[in-house]
């Protein structure tokens, strides 16, 4: 499950996140950016590297013990 979200109005499309992504899981066009869910391992390096805090890591909600 993808835990990383990109805030549309904050991203500057600079490619810093693409450069640190070990899985080649981010596709960046001029003003469009997509995380490729099948490749993303939620390692969060992109979130930490973003100069503008445009990426958010949503911590997984732990399922109630059954």
């Amino acid at each position: 499950m993808l835990l990383i979200e990109i805030k549309d109005n904050t991203c500057d499309f600079c490619g810093c996140c693409v450069g640190v992504c070990p899985e080649d899981a981010i596709a960046l066009q001029e003003a469009r950016i997509d995380i490729i869910e099948e490749r993303c391992t939620n390692c969060a390096k992109c979130v930490w590297a973003c100069p503008f805090e445009a990426l958010i890591f949503h911590r997984p909600v732990r399922e109630a013990a059954s």
């Binding site: 490619g15 810093c16 693409v18 450069g19 640190v20 070990p22 930490w48 590297a49 973003c50």
Partner: peptide, 25 residues
Amino acid sequence: GVESRVGRWAGIDTTTPFRDMECCA
């Protein structure tokens, strides 16, 4: 540029080590 995806598609690991990426504003 910094994204360096062409290299990755050709099988070269061009990922910048996290510590080596200078993140700029």
